[in-house]
Design a protein around this nucleic acid. Structure first.
Lengths: 192, 192
DNA sequence: AGCTTCATGTAATCCGTTACATGATTCC
DNA sequence: GGAATCATGTAACGGATTACATGAAGCT
């Protein structure tokens, strides 16, 4: 359900073809809300059908591409989603589920899982940190373009909320890394 | 996919009827991996069909109940899942997605979301903390029963890994609470 | 001549969500 | 007599995953 709002968010800054949108998506909001292309294209179609987007197809030789722009109804839908209370999905955490039963495997396997957990969040942390830095110094292409289409009075808010978001994610990654390290020490102490 | 392993985990300690299993589930593993009854019952059937569980139906008047016990194949499946590397689901975080675009709503709505985020994790923290305490002092009914069926040499590991799991979740809740507080200060500073 | 990028998807399947359904028994 | 608990589910739907598919244009 959030996918469409992530797409609308991008389209508030500029119109794009499905392909460009998918690319922008992967290099920005996609770090917070992942979706594969195979979900993006059909969703754009559906949104067009519901009047949230307007699509203009252009032919170029045999190939066609569709440029999507957000409609006033799309903006209204995005705004009303923004004001709606969020509902929190019930917890479903495979890594912690695993960890709770580590006594069912040996020290080596348990340590391996924890190293994988650590590595995963180190990689995520890197991505999020890179996003954060490019947001703060305005070098992020999507954010910097957004600043050109909105008045300077909004710039601080635009940047601050995105920075706040990614700072939260970086801190979360740090927490997961610390948790994995603690687990590794525990496994080492308890042995196999 | 994890649901069945969460169910197997419970059944490694004792056989139970579907109903009792569902109840145990909600008061233990369910805090890490949520599932509604409507998912649990059919999953048990499927697992029985695959030979991971053995079900014995007993009639009591007009009603019947099925007692499930884990089979050797079930134990093997659980062990092999425990040794398997985990695959990490791509990030999909509605709260952070929202926060990234707070400039699209007013200070009051943004603050409201952050207060809801905070309240959600305060409630989760309480649950996780309660689990943690009852694990550490062995008053948790499911854990304490587990200790009676496994040799004392395993007790330390059984308890330590569960405590480690819930400590991680408590710390995560703390992090989310701090993030929300930081957001509230930011919203207050930037105004509406 | 071959690799990357452009430009789109379809199909099958699975997992999970939501809402609804039923009726007996035991405890107060 | 009424509420809580026992004891199960089914049905419909929706979102996400995985694998696969196609083929041209442009750059080296």
């Amino acid at each position: 359900m959030s996918l469409r709002y992530a797409l609308l968010a991008l389209l508030t800054a500029r119109s794009m073809t499905g392909y460009d949108l998918a690319k922008s998506f992967h290099s920005s909001v996609g770090h917070v809300w992942h979706a594969p292309d195979s979900q993006i294209y059909p969703e754009l179609r559906r949104m067009e059908g519901e009047g949230l987007l307007e699509g203009t197809s252009t032919q170029r030789g045999t190939r066609s591409k569709t440029e999507y722009s957000i409609t006033p109804e799309g903006i209204a839908a995005f705004r009303s989603w923004m004001a709606e209370p969020l509902s929190y999905a019930p917890e479903r955490d495979p890594a912690h589920l695993r960890a709770a039963y580590f006594e069912w495997t040996d020290a080596e396997h348990a340590a391996e899982q924890l190293r994988a957990h650590r590595a995963h969040y180190v990689a995520m942390r890197e991505q999020w940190q890179a996003q954060l830095e490019s947001i703060l110094d305005h070098s992020h292409p999507i954010v910097s373009h957004r600043l050109t289409v909105f008045p300077p009075s909004e710039w601080e808010r635009i940047v601050a909320f995105k920075a706040f978001t990614y700072e939260g994610l970086v801190a979360r990654a740090d927490h997961e890394i610390r948790w994995a390290d603690k687990g590794l020490r525990l496994v080492a102490r308890l042995g196999g």
